[in-house]
Design a protein around this nucleic acid. Structure first.
Lengths: 241, 241
DNA sequence: ACCTGAACACCGTTCAAGT
DNA sequence: ACCTGAACACCGTTCAAGT
C-alpha cells in the first residue's frame, strides 16, 4: 500500500504518474492527516537542520513515533523529500497572488521575483529543488500558470515554453547557488571580498580590482539585473518572430 | 599537519586562504603524489557512483589503503570534495584554449559553451559545484581570465564583474539542473513529454499543448538560446553606460 | 614516522513480534 | 489492522596499537 510502483525513482515522470492522484485528492480519514503531518514535519526538520543532517530517526523522534511507521506512509527518504519540495512550491503559490499587469515583462518579473523570494525563505530545501525538474502538482501548476500568462500576452506556445524553461532555470539555479552555504548575510560577502582583495595581484589583477563589484552588489540587485538581461533577450526573440 | 585551520568550513574563503599555498605549490616528495592520487581517485569514484554513493571506505578500498590513511591527508569527506570540484575546474581550463575573437559576444559564448560542455562530462560532480561559489585556484583562474577578457573588450570593471557573475550562475545552474537526474538522454525527455501530454487538459491546457516545446528542444539548443538572451541583455547594458 | 584494524556513534531500511 | 523494538548492513571519523 505505501507505494504503487516500487521501481520508478521518486520524482520521475513515471513515479508522479502513479502518485498524482494520491497527492491531489483528499485522502480519507487518518492516513491523509498523517501524510500531511509527516510531510510538514519533514519540511520543518529540513528547514531547521538542512538536507544532510535530516534523518528518518530524527523525524520519527519529532513525531513521537518510530521510523518503521514512516515507512508505512512513504517508500523511503527520497520519496519523502519529493513531497517536501512540492510542499515548498505549494507555499510559493499560496504566498503570491499575481495581479494583472500592463506588459508581459512586468507580469513575468513579478512572478519570478515572488518565486525567488519564496525560495529564499527555505534555503535548505533549495538543493533538492535544483536536482530535478519539479513536476509534482504544485510545480505543474506554477508552470501552467506562467505559460498561460505568456500566451495571453501573445507569445507563441513554443516561445512561451522556451522562455519559461530559461527563466525557471535561472531563478532556481540562482537561488540554489546564492543560498547554499548557509546564511547569505553580508558577513559572508565581506569575507569573500577580503579574500579576493588579498589575492596575488600579479596572477589575479582583474579579480583584485573587481573585488568590490564581485561581492558588494546586493543579491537581490544582482538577481534582478540578471533577470532583466533575460527578459530583454526574450523580448527581442519575441519581436523577431 | 593535515589541516592548518580546523575551524573554517572547507571551501569557504577563510579555508581557501589557508589552503591556497598547499594546493598551488608543488608539494615535495611522496605526500604530493598521494595528495593528487587521492583527489584523482575520489574524482573518478564520484564520476562512477555519484556524490551520495561516494564513501570514504569505498575510496580507501580503491586505493588499497584504509580510511584512516585518507584522514592523514584530508580533514574529511567535505574537504576532499572541495578538491574534487577544483580538479574538475582544472580540467575545464585544460580542455579549452580560447582563441582571439572579433566581438566580446563571440569570445564570451565560446568560453561559456566550453564550460558548459566540460561540466557535462562530469554530471555527478555538478551538485557539488552548484552548492558553493567555487573560489579554489582553478575557479579563481577561470573567473580572472573571463573578467580580463571582458575588460579588454572595453567593459568597465563593474559591468564585467556583474556580467561574469550572471553568466556563471546561468551556466552552472543550468548544467546542474539538466544533468542532475542521471542520464540526460532523449529517453527521459520522451518520458517527460508523455507525462505532460497525459495530464488533465482541463487543469493544465497550456502545459499539455506545450508538451513538445517543453521537452523536445535539445538541451544544447535550449542552453544556447538562454545564453543568447543573457548576452543580448548585457550588450544592452553595456551600450547604455 | 607512517599505517591500520577495530571501535564509536551514527545512518536508511526491514521485519518479527507485540497490541 | 496498526505499530514498534531490535536488527541488518551500512556510514564518517577516531585512535590505540602495530611496523
Amino acid at each position: 500500500m505505501p507505494s504503487p510502483t516500487r521501481t520508478a525513482t521518486p520524482g520521475s515522470p513515471a513515479w508522479w504518474s502513479a502518485h498524482l492522484p494520491r497527492a491531489s485528492e483528499k485522502r480519507r480519514g487518518r492516513p491523509a492527516r498523517s501524510f500531511e503531518q509527516i510531510v510538514a514535519a519533514a519540511a520543518d526538520l529540513v528547514d531547521d537542520v538542512g538536507v544532510s543532517a535530516f534523518s528518518m530517526r530524527a523525524l520519527a523522534a519529532r513525531l513521537n513515533t518510530s521510523t518503521a511507521t514512516l515507512y508505512r506512509h512513504f517508500a523511503g527518504r527520497d520519496e519523502l523529500m519529493v513531497y517536501v519540495v512540492d510542499r515548498l512550491l505549494g507555499e510559493v503559490r499560496a504566498s503570491s497572488r499575481p495581479r494583472a499587469r500592463r506588459t508581459w515583462q512586468d507580469a513575468a518579473r513579478e512572478r519570478l521575483v515572488a518565486l525567488h523570494d519564496a525560495l529564499g525563505e527555505h534555503p535548505n530545501v533549495l538543493p533538492l529543488l535544483a536536482a530535478d525538474v519539479p513536476i509534482g502538482p504544485n510545480g505543474l501548476a506554477i508552470r501552467e500558470d506562467t505559460i498561460t500568462m505568456l500566451i495571453a500576452f501573445g507569445f507563441s506556445v513554443g516561445l512561451a515554453a522556451r522562455a519559461y524553461t530559461t527563466l525557471a532555470h535561472y531563478v532556481i539555479g540562482f537561488a540554489a547557488q546564492q543560498h547554499a552555504p548557509g546564511a547569505p548575510g553580508p558577513r559572508q560577502a565581506a569575507e569573500l571580498r577580503d579574500y579576493y582583495r588579498g589575492l596575488d595581484a600579479e596572477r589575479f589583477p582583474s579579480t583584485v580590482s573587481a573585488a568590490d563589484a564581485l561581492t558588494t552588489v546586493p543579491l537581490q540587485t544582482e538577481f534582478l539585473e540578471g533577470l532583466q538581461f533575460i527578459l530583454d533577450g526574450i523580448e527581442r526573440a519575441a519581436g523577431r518572430s
